[in-house]
Simulated assay, not measured.
Amino acid sequence: MEIPASAIPASGAEQHSTEGIVARRLDGAPDLVGAERSDPRPLVVDLSSLWAGPLCAHVLGLAGYRVVKVESADRPDGARRGSPAFFDLLHAGHESVVLDFTTDAGLRSLRLLLARADVVIEASRPRALRGLGITPEPLLRPGGVWLGITAHGRSGNEARLVGFGDDVAAGSGAWVVDPATAMPVPSCDAVADPLTGLHAARAVLEARHGGGRWFLDAAMSRVTAEAVGRHCTPVARAATWREGEWWSAAVGGVPIAQPCARRPMGRSADFGRHTTAVLGELEGAGHR
């Protein structure tokens, strides 16, 4: 039915035969190469939405990359309908471009943007971009990295599946049993998303350092299972609630500090605010 749902494993995480993020070197040269840019910063073109992909883009922005967020005119990032503060946290300082993917002009602009990018981030099922005629090999520039995030993988039946942070995490072993009710509960909020975003940012930086053109296959379920580990016992024994705060459950436990939320570095750009400027820069630089 292609709905975001996962079966909870009987105990711990199902062990995967491959690591969470699989790197594949792209041979050959691209068909379309963008010209040199006036902005010296490495360019990230972020086609992703919600949390994992934008978190990766956010971390790359903190590392000095220029981030251009590209959204469909008729399907904006769903996170825009959520907490404005959280959206600002991930997207402040990024440029916003909106394209109509149903038009030849929109697809031409998208291809030129991708050909100019040092890093491409996308988080759709493989068939979505293929349906637009977009594949990494003819577009990714020398030294570029293409990060593809999926819920469960890119081949076979897994390529058809969708998932969000909570259901993917539960199905990968990141859940616990509440001793008071004996019911399974999430280990934390949508943990597959931040795990994947952070691991992906590291993988992108490592691939960029190594040179060459790389495709990074990041499956959220594999990343989570790798983090949880083979021998995780899904029972909530790490902490207990007493005296109005959480305490570690170890012998002689100590109170656990409350988490401190980071403040956004500014406001995120309005939807499509930089479209004209970025596309003008793109067309002005030319391409071959």
Rank of each mutant, 00 (worst) to 15 (best):
I3G: 10
A5F: 13
A13W: 03
E14G: 10
G20F: 05
A23C: 00
R24V: 10
R25Q: 15
G28M: 08
D31R: 15
L32C: 13
A35D: 15
A35S: 15
P40V: 10
V59D: 09
L60T: 07
G64F: 07
V67P: 11
K69N: 12
A73V: 13
P76Y: 03
A79L: 06
R80V: 06
R80Q: 06
A85Y: 01
F87H: 14
A92R: 09
V98D: 07
D100G: 13
F101L: 15
D104Q: 08
L107H: 02
R108S: 13
R111E: 05
L114M: 07
R116N: 14
D118P: 00
I121L: 14
A123P: 00
S124V: 09
P126G: 07
P126D: 02
P126E: 01
A128P: 01
A128R: 09
R130I: 04
R130M: 04
R130L: 07
L132S: 04
E137A: 14
P138A: 14
R141G: 06
R141W: 02
G143D: 00
G143N: 02
G144H: 03
W146S: 02
G148K: 02
I149W: 02
I149G: 05
I149M: 10
N157G: 01
N157T: 08
E158F: 04
A159N: 05
R160V: 09
L161Y: 02
L161I: 08
G163Q: 04
G163F: 00
D166I: 05
V168R: 11
V168Q: 03
G173V: 12
A174G: 06
V176G: 07
V176D: 06
V177R: 09
T181Y: 11
T181H: 08
M183D: 14
V185D: 05
P186V: 06
D193I: 04
P194I: 03
G197A: 10
A201S: 15
R208E: 06
H209R: 11
G211Q: 04
G212L: 00
G212D: 01
W214I: 02
F215G: 06
L216M: 02
L216Q: 01
D217Q: 09
S221L: 00
R222T: 05
G229Q: 12
T233P: 01
P234G: 08
V235R: 12
T240H: 12
E243H: 00
G244W: 07
W246V: 11
W246P: 08
W247K: 14
A249W: 08
A249G: 12
A250N: 13
A250S: 11
I256V: 15
P264C: 08
P264Q: 04
G266R: 13
S268A: 15
R273V: 13
T275C: 10
V278S: 08
L279G: 12
E281I: 11
L282S: 14
G286R: 10
H287N: 10
